[in-house]
Design a protein around this nucleic acid. Structure first.
Lengths: 193, 193
DNA sequence: GTCTATAGAGTGATAGAC
DNA sequence: GTCTATCACTCTATAGAC
């Protein structure tokens, strides 16, 4: 591996990531990506076969980062409820929404298997990872035995994703914070101390 | 009021509603709306000042319908938990997502006050309505007194909206059903019978 | 690797005939 | 009320010079 300065290819991927987050795939044109990356038409088509190819690289990287960030919280030391709390309450750019979740609303992303795959995999992994944490909480007697790992995990991820939706609709982080507090209260009050 | 047959204006609004649901505002062109409505360019610009104006009529109608549908469940007879359950479990086109919630991801909708308003109002109303139902549940001793109406309401709406996101990501209704079951289990198990 | 030129299709709107 | 023609602009991609 060689040490490179931040090159054009890299800037294109980062530009695409930012624009996909902000405007989605349908709402982002190659030209806009190039301008933000301060790169020309030719550069983009030299490094990538087209819009889809560049978007694919951008989405993959965003998905990898999101997964790593989630895993950092969920695999940290602490009780199950503590780790879930840490995950839900970690610093987030709430009003921007979830960079992966927003792609589920993009018709062209969902219609293109290569673009869709990272989105699908990310949420499948996240639900499974959270379910495992919930299961640990059950094993340790931290949560009541009536709690079902799979559905509780789905409810937690859904509250998070829905929290973004409500925050964007209200143009305030308030409903996001409330949704997180609400789900944690429902979950945490069952803690057996 | 006069009785009209389904006219061109009406078909345009319905066409716009379907396309906004499916592809969002950014992903929908006036031409596509016209074709689906079997209407010409001239008709659209006769009835509406442009894409934005037509989209506004479409979004308003969708918001009104969604609100009426929610109110039907939440104002029905029954306990608070029964009504919340009825609301969450009513028949939905889950894989299509929420026609209002999806608009929060549309940059042009959020940047246009006229288009944004119905979205904002719908969720503000829904959260308030659900909080009122939760409060009734508290008053009747149906829910534990530790439950906070506002945050619990936010968590419920968020679980619903996030359930759509997870279902679309997975291309299955399963995670939606799990999220709903999960939140109801956390909520319902606190029921005092 | 990066540049400019070009292209065919689509976008959103206007004009004016019927 | 609806039609067609037209417009300036953007979209995504290709070609070929440098």
């Amino acid at each position: 591996m060689y040490i490179h300065r931040v090159n054009t290819r890299e800037r294109l991927v980062e530009s695409a990531r930012a624009l996909l987050w902000e405007r989605g795939y349908v709402g982002t044109s190659p030209k806009t990506i190039q301008q933000r990356a301060d790169a020309g038409q030719g550069s983009m088509y030299h490094h990538f076969s087209g819009k889809e190819d560049l978007a694919h690289a951008a989405i993959r990287r965003t998905a990898d980062e999101l997964r790593a960030a989630a895993d950092a919280q969920l695999s940290a030391p602490g009780t199950a409820v503590e780790r879930i709390t840490a995950y839900l309450c970690r610093e987030r750019d709430i009003l921007r929404g979830c960079p992966i979740g927003r792609l589920t609303q993009d018709p062209d992303v969902m219609a293109t298997p290569a673009l869709r795959a990272p989105v699908e995999e990310t949420f499948a992994w996240l639900r499974a990872r959270l379910a495992a944490v919930v299961r640990e909480g059950l094993d340790r007697g931290e949560l009541e035995s009536t709690v079902d790992p799979a559905s509780t995990a789905a409810a937690i991820v859904a509250a998070l994703q829905g929290g973004y939706v409500l925050a964007r609709a209200a143009d305030t982080t308030e409903p996001f914070d409330q949704a997180v507090a609400g789900i944690l209260a429902l979950l945490g009050a069952r803690t057996v101390h």
